[in-house]
Amino acid sequence: MANLARKLRQEQQTQQTQQAPKVSKKVQKQKRWLSPGEKILGIAFGVVICFGSVQIISNQSSIYELNKEIQDTQVTIQEQQKLNSDLTVQISELSQYDRIKEKARELGLELNEQNVKVVQD
């Protein structure tokens, strides 16, 4: 009988030890990927990046517009310089002595060498 009682005790102890770990298991909480503070920082960083991107694009757009205006102004200046040089050539052609003398004769003026005075610069 004693052996039988010992065997029962041993069986009961083994059953308790086998059941005890099963009962003592704790359910582990699933860890979050990001904490709330990290989420807030991430969102703030994203907003700053978006704002910076918009600012850069806006600045580049205004620079492009100014460069376009500068180029248009340079083209206008070049056209005006060309016109001015053409007019300078025309003035030099129209102010030749032979042409002036011919126009004076057409208008009835005559050259009197006694009335001519030489002016020096």
Score class of each variant (00 low, 15 high):
residue 27 V to I: 13
residue 23 V to M: 04
residue 78 Q to G: 11
residue 10 Q to S: 14
residue 3 N to E: 06
residue 18 Q to N: 12
residue 112 N to E: 02
residue 107 L to K: 14
residue 58 S to E: 06
residue 4 L to N: 03
residue 2 A to K: 12
residue 116 V to C: 04
residue 89 V to W: 09
residue 14 T to Q: 15
residue 59 N to R: 06
residue 96 Q to P: 02
residue 108 G to I: 01
residue 81 Q to I: 07
residue 48 V to A: 01
residue 73 T to W: 08
residue 88 T to K: 15
residue 33 W to I: 08
residue 24 S to I: 09
residue 120 Q to E: 10
residue 87 L to R: 12
residue 49 I to M: 00
residue 37 G to T: 05
residue 25 K to L: 04
residue 13 Q to H: 11
residue 32 R to K: 03
residue 56 I to L: 08
residue 24 S to L: 13
residue 3 N to V: 08
residue 52 G to S: 06
residue 51 F to D: 06
residue 36 P to V: 04
residue 66 L to N: 15
residue 81 Q to L: 09
residue 73 T to N: 13
residue 101 K to G: 01
residue 101 K to Y: 05
residue 22 K to L: 14
residue 90 Q to P: 04
residue 68 K to L: 06
residue 12 Q to L: 13
residue 21 P to G: 07
residue 50 C to V: 14
residue 56 I to A: 05
residue 20 A to V: 07
residue 71 Q to I: 07
residue 75 V to C: 04
residue 104 A to G: 05
residue 94 L to N: 14
residue 64 Y to N: 15
residue 38 E to D: 10
residue 74 Q to E: 10
residue 49 I to Y: 00
residue 36 P to H: 08
residue 50 C to P: 01
residue 46 G to Y: 00
residue 79 E to W: 05
residue 1 M to R: 12
residue 30 Q to I: 03
residue 53 S to C: 02
residue 83 L to Y: 10
residue 97 Y to T: 09
residue 80 Q to H: 10
residue 2 A to G: 11
residue 90 Q to N: 12
residue 116 V to S: 02
residue 19 Q to P: 00
residue 52 G to N: 00
residue 40 I to T: 13
residue 70 I to L: 12
residue 42 G to P: 01
residue 28 Q to K: 15
residue 29 K to W: 04
residue 62 S to Y: 11
residue 36 P to M: 04
residue 102 E to D: 13
residue 15 Q to C: 05
residue 15 Q to I: 07
residue 116 V to M: 02
residue 48 V to N: 00
residue 68 K to W: 07
residue 34 L to V: 04
residue 15 Q to N: 14
residue 59 N to C: 03
residue 85 S to V: 09
residue 50 C to N: 07
residue 6 R to I: 10
residue 89 V to Y: 11
residue 42 G to W: 03
residue 31 K to G: 04
residue 2 A to T: 07
residue 72 D to L: 13
residue 99 R to T: 10
residue 101 K to S: 06
residue 55 Q to L: 13
residue 8 L to T: 06
residue 18 Q to S: 08
residue 76 T to F: 09
residue 69 E to T: 09
residue 44 A to F: 01
residue 117 K to P: 00
residue 104 A to W: 03
residue 121 D to C: 02
